[in-house]
């Protein structure tokens, strides 16, 4: 226990003491996101992530949003376990045909009003996989998309500005 406390104390608060050049940008983004969320979503935005066929690269970067450097929850953004709790679906991958119905059902299960963000080149335009016997291609081919975040995969900062883009849009 002592070791844990010591490590915790010596590591300190990462989320407030940024040492990287881009962190001013991150803070600024965060503040803007928070303002928009406060205004439009009463302070909390629930996101349900759906992998509709990705290579899992995009998931790694979405995961990173929860690490102590980005800690996206402090801006009021929370990843939820059910589409029924979600305001936003964050969809990755080209939509594989085997996931098409699952994605449609997840979309239907999300209460209105709802928004869809297509994350990563695959979700935005089909990416490296495109359309085929096995892939429906971009997410917009299956469900309506409000905002796209290109990149292969988009970095956590790009993801954050994309989410902000939706709220400003």
């Amino acid at each position: 226990m002592f070791r844990i406390l010591k490590k915790t104390l010596t590591t300190g608060m990462l989320t407030e003491r940024f040492k990287f050049p881009k962190d001013a940008e991150l803070e600024q983004l965060g503040i803007e996101i928070k303002q928009q969320i406060d205004r439009r979503f009463s302070g909390s935005l629930a996101i349900r992530q759906v992998d509709a066929g990705s290579c899992n690269g995009c998931e790694l970067e979405i995961h990173a949003l929860n690490n102590p450097y980005y800690d996206i929850e402090r801006f009021g953004i929370h990843f939820v376990a059910s589409p029924r709790h979600a305001d936003i679906l964050l969809v990755t991958g080209p939509v594989s045909r085997h996931m098409q119905t699952a994605l449609l059902r997840t979309y239907d299960a999300t209460p209105n009003p709802k928004w869809v963000i297509a994350v990563g080149d695959c979700a935005v335009c089909g990416g490296e996989f495109g359309e085929s016997y096995a892939s429906c291609g971009k997410v917009a081919n299956v469900i309506p998309v409000d905002v796209t975040i290109p990149g292969c995969p988009p970095s956590p900062l790009v993801l954050m500005s994309g989410i902000l883009g939706l709220m400003k849009g």
């Binding site: 992998d51 066929g53 990705s54 991958g93 080209p94 594989s96 085997h98 996931m99 699952a102 996989f129 495109g130 085929s132 016997y133 096995a134 892939s135």
Partner: peptide
């Protein structure tokens, strides 16, 4: 499994 079959071998 097989849900994310994207036809990689074919394409």
């Amino acid at each position: 499994l097989g849900y994310v079959h994207k036809g990689i071998e074919k394409i």
